[in-house]
Design a protein around this nucleic acid. Sequence first.
DNA 1: CTTGACATTACAGCCAGATGGAAGGTGTAC
DNA 2: GTACACCTTCCATCTGGCTGTAATGTCAAG
Lengths: 155, 155
Amino acid sequence: MKIGELASRAGVGTKTIRYYEEIGLIPEPERTPNGYRDYDEFAVERLRFIRDAQATGLSLTEIASILDLRGHGEGTCFHVIDLLERHIDDLDRHLETLHKTRDQLVTLTERAKGLDPEDCTDPNRCQTITPGINVGVSAGMKTDHLHVAGHPSRF
Amino acid sequence: MKIGELASRAGVGTKTIRYYEEIGLIPEPERTPNGYRDYDEFAVERLRFIRDAQATGLSLTEIASILDLRGHGEGTCFHVIDLLERHIDDLDRHLETLHKTRDQLVTLTERAKGLDPEDCTDPNRCQTITPGINVGVSAGMKTDHLHVAGHPSRF
DNA sequence: CTTGACATTACAGCCAGATGGAAGGTGTAC
DNA sequence: GTACACCTTCCATCTGGCTGTAATGTCAAG
């Protein structure tokens, strides 16, 4: 399949695919006689995996090291297993914060809805975030080593 | 409290705080006679909220619009409530993907551990991602409008 | 009265992760 | 045979969110 089809099936742009190839995240595909990239089914899988892994906070570089486990000897294997285990750990903590903050956002929304719309023009009443809203959340949450993909990356 | 104390209490850098002020995410604080920024307790709350909201995938601009609900009239209120509701929705879907992908990463790790280390040098065996690993995951997951903060933002 | 940690501003630079555009080749449908 | 979508490479640019640097000011402790 050509790059355009792969792109639409995997839900990314063609630019992105070429970029991934350039940084070694996906292997160079076969080429048709006219020079067009020619992908197989597996490529769709791989791109989807990349998207999901990215969503968990793995960087493209980390994903590359996971995808490229073969042919690098024990050391790399252990390194990657370690990376994965630490990441899963961080991810679990992140999920916890996420759940808590989600609930906080719900509270915030309820509150915003509960306000009399007329009060919205009153600078003293329609302030959605107030002291106390965060009580019990974010205390001691250390999720620092975990990070998420760059800006235009949508979940 | 001075910027340094606020920074360490909220778990961010002083640069970050000044940057937030610059983009209007936090209000300009009082100044001491010598020109130093002077913050109150509420500022710590606010910064923590920002961190958590950011972790759920809200951009700083979106957070700003939530934080700045007052004094903008009904329209803005409804707009923000809408933003929040859609975001919570997206977040729920994202959490689902995240949980699934987490499990997938666990599987991947188990698999990597199960491989005989000697095979790691064999390009044909130690390929951690293979067709099939993603089966049942990422199908139809559309979390597109949700996005996460820029690159150095750690969870 | 100097050292050292802190603060100030202004502005440049960095990073991941794309994204855009120019200039040109390909291929199929009408 | 020409429109039109789609492909190619190369290179520049954008975005979000910081982060660093320089040049300078403030202030408490020893």
